[in-house]
Design a protein around this nucleic acid. Structure first.
Lengths: 379, 379
DNA sequence: AAGATAATCGCAAACGATTGCAAGGTTCCG
DNA sequence: CGGAACCTTGCAATCGTTTGCGATTATCTT
């Protein structure tokens, strides 16, 4: 059927081994024979069978990306960053949507392992049981997490490497921002409780209120999807009439809430303010444009596979690496100052956000007036 | 290193061939020995090496998805549909972002072919040269296009199978809708000229104007990205002051235009109306919510890989299959009636949209007041 | 009871590459 | 001129499966 190396070798009058060496430009091949082999290969349109090669080299030259759902624009950005890095390194990316479902995810992982995948970057490791985490760990494949709590360093997940945004700092920035605007009664609607990234945002957010001596905001957990957030918001908009602001665990959740508000006739930001997390492209043109915490999504995906590649380069067990990526506030038009509130010194708020965080990895968190700029990956 | 079939066989006291047959529950194996082999495999945590299996069976059990850019929410939806269908059939999905770049795309295709991929669903085949198209064709791999012009049936691309929305009808629906609202001076900003789907939308759109005896709208081609559309809109908003409406080639383009309008201070829909194409989730919460043509994205991706699977099932050359998927108008708040315009009979417009199309595959195109419902795939 | 038939299982050859090792041929140097 | 060193190339094993075919044993038929 397809042209094999044997065909090329025969046509070029050499042994398959020499043909192989010629194609893979290894040393110890005469320039003439190499040229001849190359010509024949070109003429026959030979394409090396990567499956066969993979069998002997033990590498599949592909890496797995296991995420909740590619339809979430956040993951689409991450995936693009990951794919670009993989392509650059001559590997391909196999896409898996886990829906944060532990069982489905384990089936994916089994499958990827069976395909002798070179490495895995995975987002939805949180719902896994300790036994499943052990199983994953003992597979011996390089793994980079996209989801890990900075606040729970004793977690067994910390043996894995990770590329994550500074969610702790981001949550705190958001909290201080709303506090400075005079919001004391704010609702926090976020994703699954077990999800490290969301958990950190929540912790940072609550920290801000605690440090200022304010009562603890109410937080409601749910799925991190548009539809789920819409449902949650519909309920709480009725129950909680004197709430003046919402902090959403991410932009998609924020959009769901905004949709609910639109239907309920509550105006943004006149009636209630809202701030998101992620800074999706769409948040520029939502109604109104969304104030949010920006995190470099593309860079995160890129960093994750680059870490994977370096892990693959040196074999044996490796020290886990945790790359924390900086975040910052993007002010748009979804928040307003509560009337009768003193204008706070903005610098003091920034100060709190910066130095108040409990870890030393906190990244630059300047407040930027729209016009996002490129980020550099914080190491 | 890893557990191989040989290990299992030895442990179970049988030959590898029996072990293989036992695992693959083929006939001619005693129930006792099968049970024994299964137990040993379970105990040793044996996982079939899919690479080795792929070498002998000639199947990689993975299918390729080549699209412009996963960050486009449209493709994210399609990808999810495709991945679900692939997973259901026990295959995985490798993701390739071509950026509509012919050369980059050919590198992807070469690579996929080298990996002996089972099939390919591809969106960005349009920029390929005829020679490249031939090369792709002669690879002999099952291929399904996501991009094909219904208007150019003589195109050599018609030898490929395809799963596409009824873009021709969609364009016409959009055109008639705006005409009925009294818009005569409308700008059409769309994607690359060579892109079959965009081309069809444009043709349908222009047809509507021609049939009503109206002057041909101006159309401007560009990249189908947020940024590119933003640029285009910025220019034309100044140059063309008496335009009253825009028809965008897709929702992302619409969003780019809306962003530009926001900055220019032109109000939607008071100053200019806009209708998009795709009905992305975000178009519900844009500012204002976007009137658009809905096309079932998830179903398209799903249909594409299902077609692929059926092609893979029966070997030999196959008759190309073209699955046309119905579209419909979703009215939201981004369009207004031009003052002083007679209220047209809406039914007559629908009539035109339905029967005016030049092909018989046109699907249901009811106008729906938001609340999208499930679509059925039109065959 | 003996030959035929059927049910199990093992042997060994693929699949298409890579790669250690040895064989053959040159060149070089003393 | 002879042997050492080097450059090129071929031989053959290997990676971990699947699978056609033949061998062995058990069951059945008459």
């Amino acid at each position: 059927m397809a042209i094999t190396l044997k065909d090329v070798a025969r046509e070029a009058g050499v042994n398959v081994s020499t043909a192989s060496r010629a194609l893979n430009n290894s040393f110890g091949i005469h320039v003439d024979t190499r040229k001849r082999v190359l010509e024949v290969a070109e003429r026959l349109k030979y394409r090396t069978n990567q499956v066969a090669r993979g069998l002997v080299t033990g590498q599949s030259h592909s890496i797995g990306l296991v995420i909740s759902d590619i339809r979430n624009p956040f993951f689409a950005e991450v995936a693009r960053g990951a794919e670009d890095a993989a392509f650059h390194a001559g590997r391909d990316l196999v896409l898996c949507n886990s829906d944060l479902n532990a069982e489905k995810q384990m089936r994916y992982l089994d499958w990827l392992l069976a395909k002798r995948i070179d490495g895995i970057v995975i987002n939805s490791v949180a719902p896994l049981s300790p036994a499943q985490q052990d199983q994953l760990w003992s597979a011996g494949v390089p793994i980079v997490l996209l989801n890990l709590s900075l606040a729970h360093r004793r977690s067994p997940l910390w043996r894995f490497s990770a590329a994550i945004a500074d969610n702790l700092a981001g949550g705190e920035i958001a909290g201080n921002y709303l506090i400075d605007l005079g919001h004391a009664h704010v609702l926090h609607v976020t994703g699954p409780r077990t999800h490290g990234n969301f958990a950190d945002r929540t912790i940072g957010f609550l920290n801000a209120f605690q440090r200022r001596g304010l009562p603890r905001p109410r937080v409601v957990y749910g799925e991190h999807t548009f539809g789920a957030a819409y449902q949650v918001a519909m309920q709480h908009l009725e129950a909680d009439r004197n709430m003046t602001a919402i902090f959403a665990g991410n932009d998609v959740i924020a959009f769901g809430c905004m949709r609910a508000m639109m239907e309920k006739g509550v105006r943004i930001p006149e009636d209630v303010s809202i701030v998101g997390f992620d800074n999706l492209e769409m948040s520029q043109i939502s109604s109104p444009p969304l104030t949010t915490i920006d995190q470099p999504k593309y860079e995160t995906g890129k960093a994750a596979v680059e870490m994977l590649l370096s892990m693959m380069a040196k074999d044996g067990p490796h020290e886990p690496e945790h790359r924390i990526i900086g975040v910052r506030l993007i002010e748009r038009e979804s928040c307003r100052r509560i009337a009768g509130t003193a204008v706070q010194d903005r610098r003091s708020a920034k100060h709190l956000a910066r130095d108040g965080s409990s870890h030393s990895l906190s990244a630059a968190n300047k407040s930027v007036r729209d016009k996002p700029r490129k980020h550099s990956v914080k190491e």
